[in-house]
Design a protein around this nucleic acid. Structure first.
Lengths: 224, 224
DNA sequence: AAAAATATGATTGTATACAATGATACAGGA
DNA sequence: TCCTGTATCATTGTATACAATCATATTTTT
């Protein structure tokens, strides 16, 4: 946040430093490194076949993203997400996704709208077949399309960061399915509101979509 | 934001790396390094009396904060803020400051409320005397108190980042005064709504406060 | 003279060396 | 036994050395 955090991802995605950064990040989000685990520069460097230098630089970035906490002269520790953090993020996201949907209504390109429609159809198809894995991927993509369609680098970056940040929690929910149908229906409604150029309705629906997603997480008792 | 960008500032504020980071950041926000300036690792390291290593690490963080843009194998360049960026940020901030004010209403401590009241009184005093410099400082502080009072590390960090990010633009507005009285009055209204435990009203007022601040920037033609 | 190829210098990227710091284990004394 | 001081070791912090890359200038070729 810090920062609105507006890093340039595209340019460095394939540089060595970029790869180290993305790899560690992925390992944290996927749960390989767990809450309060200590990350040692040398060990990770060795594992990735690089020296400590790029690892250290990646650590600094991960700290700013809030995934690790660096205690000077001591070490780097994976930060935990408290249930309050998750609650806060979903509340913040509900506002921002609403704004995003409103802007997207005005600014979405033809191609983006088509991909969104396709996404909704495909997701409904996979829901019938019970393909939870594909539904999860499509759910992620639906929101990404929305973020890109709002045509605001600031908002897009912010929402993508939050989206990733709660991934550790969401992973569990998505695996449990059950909300898949409801979620798909909400996606369809948002898409149709955007298609009909009803910005305010799209905003309201996107906002509600987030609040319901949070309720689901909460009810399932996925949070401590 | 990225941010959410949730760096740990306290722990490293006085480490060497931390100092380098904060110094460069300050130099950018204060305008010493201007839009599209190229920052050379060696030159800055020499100026600060350190080697390139801590400078590089600071660069990585500044990139994530969106203050500079790193082109691999080429260099680091100060990012410009477009007028659209500013517009987007103020729109986003209006939503988030609203949420912040609502939460603050429920969670503000006695000490924080007292400091806020004092802040409002002092600001009105300095406004009468025409002390623009003090008004600017108090204005910054008013919002910081609000951010801290909402008792959400996530939201606090996000808002502080945005606050800093638009500092480059706001500096000019604040120097021009003129909105000082209106702004002070809005601060007072927000404070009183919080004091009266009227969360929704505080939210609405805080939201409006942001939108008016943006209108002011826009009208003054401070943006390209 | 124009274009292409090459050489030169400056700058970033990475690895490594050394210094500083913190944690742990052990020894000595109360 | 418990506390304290010291030694040792692991780890991070910083500086430096070298490699890779890019921009520019120079030379060569047509």
């Amino acid at each position: 946040m810090s920062d609105y955090n507006l890093k340039e991802e595209v340019t460095d995605k394939y540089s060595l430093r970029g790869r180290v950064f993305h790899k560690i990040r992925e390992d944290i989000l996927n749960g390989k490194y767990k809450e309060n685990d200590e990350l040692r520069e040398a060990a990770i460097g060795e594992e990735l076949g690089v020296s400590r230098t790029p690892v250290r630089e990646a650590f600094r970035q991960l700290e700013l993203e809030g995934l690790i906490r660096i205690v000077p002269n001591k070490g780097a520790y994976v930060t935990g997400i408290t249930s309050k953090d998750v609650a806060d993020i979903y509340m913040i996201r509900s506002l921002l996704e609403g704004l995003c949907a409103k802007w997207a209504t005005e600014r979405i390109s033809h191609e983006q709208l088509e991909e969104m429609e396709e996404n909704v159809y495909l997701s409904e198809f996979h829901a019938e077949k019970g393909h939870t894995q594909q539904i999860a991927v499509l759910d992620n993509r639906f929101h990404e399309i929305l973020y890109e369609a709002c045509d605001s680098k600031m908002l897009e970056h912010l929402l993508k960061d939050f989206h990733q940040y709660v991934y550790r929690v969401r992973k569990q929910t998505l695996a449990q399915d059950s909300r898949g149908n409801a979620s798909n229906h909400e996606h369809r409604e948002i898409m149709e509101a955007i298609k009909a150029h009803e910005g305010e309705r799209a905003a309201e629906l996107a906002k509600l979509h987030m609040l319901k997603a949070y309720e689901n997480i909460q009810q399932k008792g996925l949070l401590k």
